[in-house]
Amino acid sequence: MIAALRSGAMGGRLSGLLLVALPVALLIWLVLWPVLQAMVGTVYFPGTGFSIASYTYFFTDAYSLRNLWLTLWVTALTSVLRVVVAMPIALYLRFRTGSIAALVQALALFPMFVPSVLVAYAFIRVLGPNGIVDTVLVALHLPKLMSPYLTPAGPIIGLVWDGLPLTLLLLLSGLGRVSIASVDAARDLGAGSWTLFTRIILPRIQSSIIVTLAFNVLGLFSAFTLPFLLGPASPEMMGPYMQRTFSDNADPLNATTQAVITFAFCAAFGLIYVRAIAKGRKGTA
């Protein structure tokens, strides 16, 4: 293979193709083929022909639309909250070093190593009714917490915590492109912290913020465990709704339709991500 790499442009192209052949083949077999199957399977029925009845049903069914709408706004709110929460931590870690910074980093990355089922049950024990927070509040003679358990706020809090590490790492890698020298120079010219952030730092990490948001949206759209265990019974997020349609109602057609619609939204965000990456490359080249 290495010999082939050296044997000129033609051979190099071939071995390069061979190197990516396996992942591309896996992608086609395990992702693109099932997606195509699902798309075709929901509109074409052997023997009866084409029909978009299941899509018409989804987009005229108030219950399904409410679930889609909930998924959209939980996704939007959670993605924004993740960036808002992770940004100060990322700024701190970028411009500070030392043992406290290391501790902050370890704590912020900790959720990455906790399975979401554990997050959900820990959440119920801590923030749930008569949980640890309530115990502390009562001991201090304060009123009890309005528990977010089984309300739409429940999954949002859980998902923000659960997704913090990935957001933080993506923002940190973006901040790596902001040179300390330029920050110092701006400071010498008398820029305040806010000006520094909006005029120097933000323009440089714009594309990483878009990448972070796109990544978050893709993950959140299909979130299952936390909305299922912490959220209200209805409206449901698309993940639990698809699962219920498929296994409880034994209705693969409508479940697949829901999956294709979900996929279409995710693909749109995927496109934004790819464009951001392409733009970033052009910018640095």
């Binding site: 409410r66 219920r244 409880d248």
Partner: peptide, 10 residues
Amino acid sequence: QDGWYRNVAP
């Protein structure tokens, strides 16, 4: 089960 989701839960 499905009727409950559509009529009671929301």
